[in-house]
């Protein structure tokens, strides 16, 4: 099979599809966190990439300093980094309520510089290895390809967490508070709900999702200070393509664009880095509010 002059082998196709799904898993988790935060705070969290990186580092520290393995990290790292996020919201973002949201955005941008600079200081540009947990080592033979167990796990974990988050937001009482507060926070407060606390927790939760993605990424990529900065621009493009209006939209767009990017690597590798941005440009021309966004 040839296309654009490239010979396409089926194993390469499956391989890139798999990589696409993995990348999509990260895009989905990160853009979901951004969407959740945006819904409540009306800001884009530019520190999201930094929190993702810190999630991976938390896993690394838990292992090297306390001996707590991957499975503990999967729970503890989002809790720790999420708590840091909640403190950031409480200490800084709350003070900017009432000002142009661009100031909040700039604040998260500055925090990202601080966090990333701190880690770069101590770890340089190099990466720390983090090994795949032994329960997830090895690969399955699917007949047409070998699927490393850990990669399969990343996809499953991401899908489960994304759908779980979606279900909580769309189908539970807590989610109803969130949706209502997104629409009219004052009225929800007038019903006796502590919306300011909810905003803090929501920010913490969005950050925790980023940290969770960071832990998932730790055994795949090395744990590096720059890992967040590398992925975040693509995630922003994903968010712009999906539109900020819908939780489910951000999840679906994340996975689909990961796969599209993977397929581009097979069919037209030169464009694989930029395909998401090109799609963003097209979407902006046709539907400025994004595929799932409300104009």
């Amino acid at each position: 099979m040839t296309l654009f002059g490239h010979a396409i082998s089926m194993p390469a196709l499956y391989g890139q599809l798999l990589i696409g799904l993995i990348n999509g898993s990260f895009y989905a988790l990160l853009s979901l966190g951004l969407a959740v935060i945006f819904g409540m705070l009306q800001i884009v969290n530019f520190a999201h990439g930094a929190f993702y990186m810190m999630g991976a580092f938390a896993a690394y520290f838990l292992l090297t300093l306390t001996g707590l393995d991957y499975w503990f990290a999967l729970i503890l790292s989002p809790l720790i980094i999420g708590a840091i996020g909640a403190v950031v919201e409480r200490l800084f973002l709350k003070r900017l309520a009432g000002f142009d949201p661009l100031y909040s955005l700039l604040l998260t941008f500055g925090l990202a510089l601080v966090f990333q600079g701190l880690f770069q200081n101590y770890f340089g540009a190099s990466g720390m290895p983090y090994s795949i947990p032994k329960q997830l080592a090895g690969a399955w033979n699917l007949g047409f390809m070998f699927l490393p167990v850990y990669r399969g796990w990343v996809i499953v974990a991401s899908v489960v967490v994304c759908l779980g988050t979606w279900l909580v937001i769309e189908k539970t009482k807590l989610g109803a508070y969130l949706r209502a507060a997104t629409e009219n926070p004052t009225m929800v407060r007038a019903f006796g709900v502590n919306v300011p606390r909810m905003v803090t927790l929501t920010y913490g939760f969005g950050v925790a999702l980023a940290a969770f993605a960071g832990v998932l990424a730790a055994p795949i990529a090395q744990v590096r200070p720059g890992m967040g900065a590398d992925i975040i621009a693509v995630v922003f493009a994903v968010v712009v393509i999906g539109g900020m209006g819908s939780i489910l939209g951000s999840i679906v767009t994340g996975f689909v664009l990961g796969v599209v990017e993977g397929l581009t690597k097979v069919f037209y590798p030169e464009a694989s880095n930029t395909v998401v941005f090109v799609i963003m440009a097209i979407v902006l021309l046709v539907r400025p509010a994004g595929l799932f966004g409300r104009a």
Partner: peptide
């Protein structure tokens, strides 16, 4: 609000992204 003061505002403030049932059961 928790002390038992309730407001039914002029604009009614029904939440469009919630169902009628969710709206009804929203206030704790």
């Amino acid at each position: 609000a928790r002390l038992g003061v309730a407001l039914c505002p002029e604009e009614r403030a029904i939440f469009a992204s919630l169902t009628v049932k969710e709206n009804l059961f929203l206030p704790p």
